[in-house]
Simulated assay, not measured.
Amino acid sequence: MENNLWNNYIQSVKDQSPLVHNMTNFVVMNNTANALLAVGASPIMAHAKSEIKEMVAISNAVVINIGTLDEDWSESMLIAAEEAHRTKKTWVLDPVGAGATSFRDEVLAKLLQFNPTVIRGNASEIIALAKANKTITKGVDSTAESNEAVFAAQSLVEKYRSVVCISGATDIIIDDKETYFVENGHPLMTKVTGLGCSASAIVGAFAGVSENKTESTVAAMALLGIAGELSEKISKGPGSLQMNILDKLYNISEKEFFENVNVSKK
């Protein structure tokens, strides 16, 4: 499995340099673009309604992140999701702050109609998205453990045929047949804004060049988690961690990946 994660996905992104169209939030645009460049992908950020369909057409994947949602961007996102669905293009939904406001939930309900290829969010967001039960959303941080969201994720998989990734101390990736657990990462990563958003973008890059959307998502989450683990050892705090993660995403070796990857399957 680990060999496949490297050769089939991590190396494939480096070799193919997929174009990833990010409709993401103001807070993380720079971080996201740099993370994509570091893993070998090519980022583009575009939100104008007049060019969305053309951008989707030339991209390997579309990533929609609703972090700093507004009325204009929501229209652009719906155009992108519909076009990606129509043309069978890989697209990833990051439901930032799901459950926090009725506006977010209304937009998310519309986006889900276009069957995201992958949905990646924290436990609270996945639970809110599935309306599996009531949970408190504290800003965009998770207030629920990732394993509590498994039932919610399974309901999303069943209804929308998406791969669902619940991010947390253990990342849980679920499709209609299997469940994977990625136990890589470090708690200090939660002190760097936008790493979850970077994770969604990297998932988009990996899924955009792969037929197996589940394994590619596992590979993306494992890579970022390992980069975080290794970077924490040489970092003095969240500022240097952010810088060191970018460097490690860029220069991580196959040997480092194999020595640190911690993935299991149920």
Rank of each mutant, 00 (worst) to 15 (best):
V63G: 00
I64G: 04
I66K: 03
G67K: 10
G67T: 05
L69Y: 00
D70P: 02
D70A: 05
S74A: 14
S74V: 03
E75F: 02
E75N: 11
S76W: 07
M77T: 00
M77N: 00
L78I: 15
L78P: 03
I79N: 08
I79D: 03
I79E: 08
A80R: 04
A80D: 05
A80H: 11
E83D: 13
A84K: 09
H85P: 04
H85A: 11
H85L: 10
R86G: 01
R86H: 05
K88L: 14
K88P: 06
K88C: 14
T90F: 00
W91N: 02
W91L: 11
V92Y: 05
V92R: 00
L93V: 09
G97R: 10
A100E: 07
T101V: 05
S102V: 14
S102L: 13
D105Y: 00
E106G: 06
V107A: 07
V107N: 06
A109V: 02
K110W: 03
K110T: 03
L111A: 09
L111H: 05
L112I: 08
F114E: 06
F114H: 15
F114G: 02
F114N: 12
P116I: 07
T117V: 14
T117E: 06
V118D: 01
I119C: 01
G121V: 02
N122Y: 06
N122D: 15
S124H: 12
I126T: 14
I126M: 07
I126A: 05
I127L: 06
A128F: 04
L129S: 00
L129D: 06
A130C: 03
A130D: 03
A132D: 12
N133D: 12
T135I: 15
T137L: 08
K138P: 01
G139C: 14
D141A: 13
T143D: 12
A144N: 07
A144M: 09
S146I: 02
N147P: 10
N147T: 15
E148S: 13
V150Y: 04
F151I: 13
F151A: 15
F151L: 14
F151M: 15
F151Y: 14
A152F: 08
A153M: 08
A153G: 15
S155D: 15
L156V: 08
V157Q: 12
E158Y: 09
K159T: 14
Y160T: 07
R161T: 11
R161L: 12
S162N: 06
S162R: 04
V163T: 11
V163Q: 04
V163C: 08
S167E: 07
G168S: 11
T170F: 07
D171L: 10
I174T: 08
I174N: 01
D175Y: 06
D175P: 02
K177T: 13
E178M: 07
E178Q: 15
T179H: 00
Y180R: 03
F181N: 10
F181L: 13
V182F: 07
V182L: 06
V182H: 03
N184E: 09
G185N: 02
H186I: 15
H186R: 06
H186L: 06
P187I: 00
L188P: 00
M189H: 03
T190N: 07
T190R: 09
G194P: 13
G194V: 11
G194K: 10
G194Y: 13
G194M: 09
G194A: 14
C197P: 08
C197N: 12
A199F: 04
A201T: 04
A201C: 13
A201M: 09
